[in-house]
Computed example of a mutant assay.
Amino acid sequence: MSQPGPQKTAIKEGQVAYNLVDIHSRADLPSPASDYGIGHAPPPIKGSAYSDKVRARDSLRFVITDLSEQSPFSTHGSPFTFGPIEVPEDGRVNIPYVGELKVIGRDTADISSELDEKLRPVSKTAQGSVGRTARIPHTANVIGEVRNPGPVPLEKSSITSLDLLAVSGGPIEADHLYKYTLRRNGQDYVFDYQGFRTNPFPVEEGDLLTVNSDTSHRFHVMGAINKPMTVPFPVPFPTLADAIGAASGFDERRSDPSGVFVFRKGNPDTVYTLNLKDPASVLLTQRFAIKGEDIVYVTEAPLTRWSRLISQLLPVSQFSQAAYNLDRIRQ
């Protein structure tokens, strides 16, 4: 005869395979679920990803102003402009009548000062300035289950891991359902949601943040329940009441509330049993901490098995009368 799982007596008689714990009071409750906070900040490799100093492939424009008509930079009232020019890998730029300037790794103000010095032998009235017109940004990347995956420019100082996550729009669902993996220099650093949020660290160029579902943050509800299912944690620290509520409660026509079990794998495996016909036990469900991969199982009432047996033996009309009589017996 089919049934959704083991009966209450079968579970209580199978204690050789697991440790059976009856929950009658708060003293019998298992220890709370493990705290969040996994994750350690990765060590710096490249240092700050942002710098205002000129780097290779930046575009610079050199502007020289000289009112003297004898100056080679005279353009009859308009400034002499050289560029934009892309900074080569060696960081050296040649300017007509001025010569070579080493620009890489320097501030634009510092380059402007050197340009003025090199202009004096050419024209005592010339003045120069340097401006950056464009640059290829350094980036970090966010992939996985976020709203806006993709590269994030690091063109501001002090960008942290939290800023990186915020720019991506954050996880698609609740933060506690995900794990966060940062890859830096070929090494992975794994965080849970609280560890990631409480330990922000500076982001470096080339960092890769992956946001994936944490499959250990779920439980299973089975047996004589309205909606048997696998449930992601509805809150960071779910209770047995949350688990039963997530499955829309007991199936009133089939369930036996005196036989509610929580199966928990471990060393040894443990099965907790509660009698929810007892009001005190109902209150305990709000204090019973559910852990990841727990199985909440509600047994069937014995009369339900007889109803199923009769339905297989009797014609439909006779079964309807028998089912009616069984309902009256239950009442």
Rank of each mutant, 00 (worst) to 15 (best):
I11K: 04
Q3H: 14
S255I: 12
I64N: 02
L115R: 02
L177G: 00
P4K: 05
L182Q: 00
K227G: 08
V146T: 06
K12E: 09
P238K: 03
T215M: 12
D327K: 15
G150Y: 02
R132E: 05
P228L: 08
P151H: 06
L284D: 01
T108L: 12
N267C: 11
D294K: 05
R330N: 14
D192P: 01
A289H: 08
Y297K: 05
G128D: 03
A140G: 01
G259Y: 00
Y50M: 07
E114V: 12
R92D: 11
R218G: 03
F82C: 07
E205Q: 06
A280T: 13
K124S: 14
V167R: 01
T198D: 04
L208I: 08
F62S: 01
L20R: 04
G128V: 05
Q187F: 10
G170D: 01
P153H: 08
D35T: 12
D214V: 06
P236T: 04
S320K: 15
V260Q: 01
L274A: 07
S161L: 03
P315C: 11
E252D: 12
T65R: 11
G131D: 12
T125I: 10
Y324D: 11
E252G: 13
I136N: 15
T108E: 04
Q70D: 10
D110C: 11
R218F: 06
K12S: 11
D207N: 02
G292P: 02
L182Y: 00
V122E: 04
G150E: 02
A301S: 14
F261E: 01
K291P: 03
Q15T: 11
F319I: 14
P232Y: 02
E100N: 14
I85V: 14
R92Y: 13
G245S: 14
V231Y: 02
S161A: 07
A140Q: 00
R253P: 04
S71K: 05
V167G: 00
V167T: 03
P234F: 04
R147M: 08
T215S: 15
N267E: 09
P32V: 08
V298Q: 01
Q7A: 11
P88M: 04
P30L: 10
N148H: 14
P151M: 06
Q3E: 09
D90S: 12
W306N: 04
G39F: 00
S129N: 15
A224M: 07
K8F: 06
G195H: 03
Y189H: 03
T125H: 15
F250W: 09
L165T: 00
M222S: 11
P268F: 09
P151E: 07
L313G: 10
K277C: 12
D35H: 11
S317Q: 14
S320F: 14
R92L: 13
R197N: 04
D66I: 05
V316M: 15
S216I: 10
A289E: 04
T285H: 06
K277E: 10
Q15Y: 07
D278I: 13
G77R: 06
D294T: 10
P200S: 05
M222C: 07
